[in-house]
């Protein structure tokens, strides 16, 4: 009894559709659902630092407040932070699957962030959530929580101009309160 030729063809199709992309995802590495390089619990910041990003709305009346999350804005806080890192900010580690961009520049990063924040603002407006109605800018703060506490501003997205401006250090930004 010999195998039918049709069997062989489908075996090749299955290999091209599943096995080859799986191997590619491991080798490159990348993650594109359902192909994965399975990076869970692989890295630890043993000698590094942990950072907590926060998104702050700067209002027209000069006040500030954190970006509202579910259900007020329709945005999940932790998913938003992950999506922002992968889709917009980008990882600086070329060996990671967390959205590293080869030959990245500050201009490319700013363009990605502008696209990302514009999509978020569109989302809140389409869902009739008045999150950005009286907002001048969205500020992105980065707090280092260990080993030493510190805080800095990553940048500021100006809503009217659709423009993201990068800022360097907290100490240069007098408008931001010092972390106690």
């Amino acid at each position: 009894m010999k195998p039918a030729w049709g069997h062989g063809v489908w075996c090749v199709v299955a290999s091209l559709l599943l096995f080859v992309p799986n191997v590619a995802a491991v080798v490159v590495p990348f993650e594109a659902w359902p192909y994965t390089c399975a990076p869970m619990f692989a890295a630890s910041p043993v000698d590094n630092a942990l950072y907590l990003p926060t998104f702050i709305l700067e209002k027209k009346d000069g006040s500030t407040e954190p970006l509202p999350t579910l259900p007020a804005s329709g945005i999940s806080e932790w998913l938003f932070k992950r999506a922002f890192l992968i889709e917009a900010w980008g990882s600086d580690d070329p060996s990671t699957s967390f959205g590293h961009v080869d030959d990245d520049t500050a201009a490319k990063r700013a363009a990605r962030i502008e696209r990302f924040v514009q999509a978020m603002i569109r989302h809140t407006r389409r869902s009739k959530r008045p999150v950005f109605d009286d907002v001048v800018a969205l500020r992105i703060d980065l707090e280092q929580t260990q080993p030493v506490k510190s805080k800095r501003v990553l940048g500021r997205y100006v809503v009217a101009a659709h423009h993201f401006e990068t800022r360097q250090r907290l100490e240069h930004q007098h408008s931001i309160a010092e972390v106690p």
């Binding site: 590094n48 942990l50 932790w78 990882s91 580690d93 510190s150």
Partner: peptide, 28 residues
Amino acid sequence: TLQWYLAGGARSLQYWYGPLDSDTISGH
């Protein structure tokens, strides 16, 4: 690494990690 995770180092899904005192971020 395993010790760091089991001891509860990654206690929130909101954290990013990266080199110390730098603007570069490695992952979440």
